[in-house]
Amino acid sequence: MISTQKLSISYHGRTVLRNASLVAEPGKVLALVGPSGCGKSSFLCALNRMTDLLPGARVSGQITFDGQGIEEAFASPVELRRNVGMIFQKPNPFAMSIRRNIELAVREHGRHSRSDRQRIIESVLRDVGLWDEVHDRLDHSALELSGGQQQRLCIARALALKPQVLLMDEPCSALDPIAADRVEQLIRSMRGQYTIIIVTHNLAQARRLADHMAVFWICEGVGEIIEYGETESLFRSSANPLVTSYLSGRSG
């Protein structure tokens, strides 16, 4: 379980998100929705401390992992990121072979024999439904794959580290509808095994995928979470008229 309490994020002193508190339950899918620029990606980056890499970014507030603060739960950001995988909007495989893309981080994080690695590669590629498509060209460049295949490779690459949490920032938005649908199915099949936090602009997708949902909004120029709850009940009715009109597609 991963949760945040009063998380605020600023870039170069400009606050872009304030007092964000929410809970992502283990094995469940949490969708983050809301208009552009309200800090969803920044929020996601704070969870695995990718914000450390962004110049000028500052995070305050609490992030807890299974009840412990992330500083106590993980010795280092590296350790944290091994347990909290991240998938980006634009598929970003390395310009290396498919095999090497998956192996790279696995090798970095422990001793595995060649056959162990081969087993991991096969199993994660099967998990993302890519094995049948690429098993005979594992040594070809990952850049030869289509965008949708690249994105599934990126997911496989993250799964190879056996993370507990997966952060996904609009993982389908750079893909054509069919490839997007495959990735969506994949996410659905991963439900129960991983805690998934997914940012999406596709409300129908959020409704199909997510158990819980957090609605971000820009209030007085600063992002905030204005609603959090079970997806279905939010779609049916929300106390907040902004949320109701956003979720019914009338604004945002």
């Binding site: 980006f88 790279l104 970095e108």
Partner: peptide, 25 residues
């Protein structure tokens, strides 16, 4: 920079990112 972010997100440290990802690229 996507390469650096991707590497960091996979739990590669700074030098691993440099030697395994950035310099080969």
């Amino acid at each position: 920079n996507e390469y650096r972010y991707a590497a960091a997100a996979l739990g590669l440290g700074r030098s691993a990112t440099l030697f395994r990802v950035v310099l080969p690229a």
